[in-house]
C-alpha cells in the first residue's frame, strides 16, 4: 500500500465486501518514521465518511536486531490498532512472540526451510497470546516451484498449529488493488492449502475480531490526532 493512495485501497476493499480493513505501513524498527504513521492515522480517520468498511491504521515493523525492535515497539504501539512484526530470524521471532504489545508475528518462515517456529516460540505464542500471521502476499507473489515451497512451509505451520493450538491469523498483505482478494476467494485458497472450514473461519473472522476487541477494550489507548479514543486500559 506504500505506492497506492489509502482511499483507493479502502474503496477497493469495500467493493470486495470487507467489513474491517487495516491499512498497514511497513517501517524499519531501527528508524521508524512516526510522521508517516501519524499521516496514515489521519488519512484513515478521514476515510470513515467515504467508505462503509471500518478502516484502521496499522504497522508492520521490520527489524534486524531484537534490541531495536524492543525500542521501536513502545513508540509505534500507541499510534496503531494493529502492530505486526515481520519475522524470519530466530531472535526476531522470539522477541516478537514474547512481547504482549505485539499483535502478530508475520511470516516467521521467511528464510527458513521450515515454519520458523520451535517449541519455545510456540509456548511463547500461546502464553502471550501473540498471533502468528500467515502473509498470503508471499504466496500470491510466487508461482511454480517457489509457490510449492511456500505452500509446504505453510503446511508445516498448520501441522504445528493442530498439535499446539497457538493463535493464528491470516493477512492479505496486498500492496495494490491487483493483489486483493474477495473474502470468499480467500476461503477457497485456505481450503486448497488444507485448512478446514472451522480453522479458516477462526483465522479469518474470529482472530481479527478478537484482536481488535482486545486492543480496544483493555490493552492500549489511542490518542492519535484524528483517531477517536475508543477504549481505556
Amino acid at each position: 500500500m506504500d505506492e497506492v493512495d489509502p482511499l483507493r485501497m479502502a474503496l477497493a476493499t469495500d467493493r470486495l465486501g470487507y467489513e474491517v480493513v487495516i491499512l498497514t505501513l511497513r517501517l524499519r524498527a531501527e528508524d521508524p518514521d512516526l510522521d508517516e504513521l501519524e499521516w496514515l492515522a489521519e488519512e484513515t480517520a478521514e476515510l470513515r465518511d467515504r467508505v462503509d468498511a471500518l478502516v484502521l491504521p496499522g504497522c508492520q515493523l521490520e527489524a534486524e536486531d531484537p534490541g531495536a525492535l524492543r525500542r521501536a515497539i513502545p513508540r509505534v504501539r500507541p499510534l496503531v490498532y494493529y502492530l505486526a512484526v515481520g519475522g524470519g530470524r530466530p531472535g526476531i521471532n522470539r522477541a516478537a512472540l514474547g512481547d504482549t504489545r505485539v499483535d502478530a508475528l508475520s511470516h516467521p518462515e521467511r528464510g527458513n526451510p521450515h515454519a520458523g517456529l520451535g517449541k519455545h516460540e510456540l509456548e511463547l505464542a500461546r502464553e502471550k497470546r501473540t498471533y502468528v500471521e500467515i502473509d498470503l502476499a508471499r504466496l500470491l507473489r510466487r508461482s511454480g516451484e517457489r509457490l510449492a515451497w511456500q505452500v509446504s512451509r505453510l503446511r508445516d505451520l498448520l501441522r504445528m498449529r493442530r498439535r499446539k493450538r497457538f493463535p493464528l491469523t491470516v493477512a492479505l498483505g496486498a500492496r495494490d488493488p491487483l493483489e486483493l482478494l474477495p473474502a470468499r476467494q480467500l476461503e477457497d485458497v485456505l481450503d486448497l492449502l488444507g485448512l478446514s472450514e472451522g480453522e479458516a473461519r477462526e483465522a479469518l473472522v474470529e482472530a481479527p475480531r478478537e484482536l481488535l476487541r482486545w486492543n480496544v477494550a483493555c490493552k492500549h489507548v489511542f490518542v492519535v490526532p484524528g483517531v477517536a479514543v475508543v477504549g481505556h486500559g
Binding site: 470486495l16 504466496l139 500470491l140 507473489r141 508461482s143 509457490l147 488493488p177 491487483l178 493483489e179 486483493l180 482478494l181 474477495p182 470468499r184 476467494q185 480467500l186 477457497d188 485458497v189 481450503d191 486448497l192
Partner: peptide
C-alpha cells in the same frame, strides 16, 4: 468449483497480461 476458484485466485502473473487478478 472451490478448487477452480482457489486456482483462479492464486494465479497472479501472466506472460501476456503481466500482473493479473481473476476476481470471482
Amino acid at each position: 468449483e472451490s478448487r477452480a476458484r482457489a486456482a483462479l485466485s492464486l494465479y497472479r502473473r501472466d506472460p501476456e497480461l503481466g500482473r493479473v487478478f481473476l476476481e470471482v
